[in-house]
């Protein structure tokens, strides 16, 4: 059984976001790139499944759409424990294009389970996973907080609006995963880092790009008014302010 993790290369959460070219593009100067946190949890869970005796998982592959500058992040995923990686040599644009590039690359490659993080921490769309499953015409399960496998059949727990459900799904399928699938991302070991250097990283060329949504301009949010402080012994005043001034209770 083979698992594929779709991985996005995003600015570190603590990055100060700045724009350039008249606020039309992200200024990447000094930006630290990381594996999208939800994708990192997906990778962690895939590796746990692979290590489970009898799970039947033989291989965990990561795939990303990005130029050569995405490679350090891919090497990190290999250091964490992925067996190999695929980079589609294209600047990631909108969700549709990214999903299509991945679907084209992995169609007929025999992945039993495809895992995607529930959203990427840069464009916050939550779209790529579901789109890949539609391109591949395979079932998708979203907001997944647990994946277990027993003799080829997957048990999935997902959150719905107002509760939780347990589902049974047969491969191949795609799961869009969120917290719960794993709690802490795995950290690469020294041995992992050494091994990552020689693990296969295949670079493939993209199909002709089709972009449906363009980001034309960015703005920083207006700077926030200073926090209004209320004395510790005057909680009643705060409640009044929330009622009469902020009008939120």
């Amino acid at each position: 059984m083979k698992i594929l993790i779709c991985m996005s290369n995003v600015p570190d959460t603590t990055t100060k976001i700045r724009f350039k070219d008249g606020n039309t593009a992200l200024d990447t100067t000094g930006v630290q790139w990381i594996i999208n946190p939800w994708d990192e949890l997906a990778l962690t869970r895939a590796l746990q499944l692979k290590e489970e005796p009898g799970s039947g998982v033989e291989k965990v592959t990561v795939i990303t759409v990005g130029l050569a500058d995405a490679e350090p992040t891919i090497r990190k995923a290999l250091a964490i424990g992925a067996d190999d990686a695929i980079r589609i040599n294209s600047q990631a644009t909108d969700a549709y294009d990214v999903a299509r590039q991945i679907a084209e690359a992995v169609n007929n490659e025999g992945y039993d389970l495809i895992l995607c993080g529930i959203e990427s921490s840069d464009y916050n769309n939550s779209m790529v996973g579901g789109m890949i499953s539609e391109f591949l015409d395979i079932p998708s399960v979203s907001s997944v907080s647990s994946v277990t496998v027993d003799s080829g059949r997957f048990k999935i727990k997902r959150e719905i609006d107002g509760g939780k459900e347990t589902l049974s799904v047969t491969a191949p399928f795609l799961a869009v995963v969120q917290k719960g699938i794993a709690l802490e991302p795995r950290i690469p070991s020294m041995r992992g880092i050494m091994m990552a250097r020689t693990k296969p990283l295949k670079v493939i060329e993209p199909v002709t790009s089709e972009v449906l949504v363009e980001h034309i301009r960015y703005e920083l949010p207006p700077s926030k008014a200073k926090c209004r402080m209320v004395a510790e012994d005057n909680v009643r005043e705060l409640v009044q302010l929330l009622h009469t001034e902020a009008k939120v209770i």
Partner: peptide, 16 residues
């Protein structure tokens, strides 16, 4: 729409 976890807003154009 918001982007970068609320650290910015983007104007997007949907071309379809």
């Amino acid at each position: 729409k918001k982007a970068f976890n609320g650290k910015a807003f983007a104007t997007i154009v949907i071309k379809t």
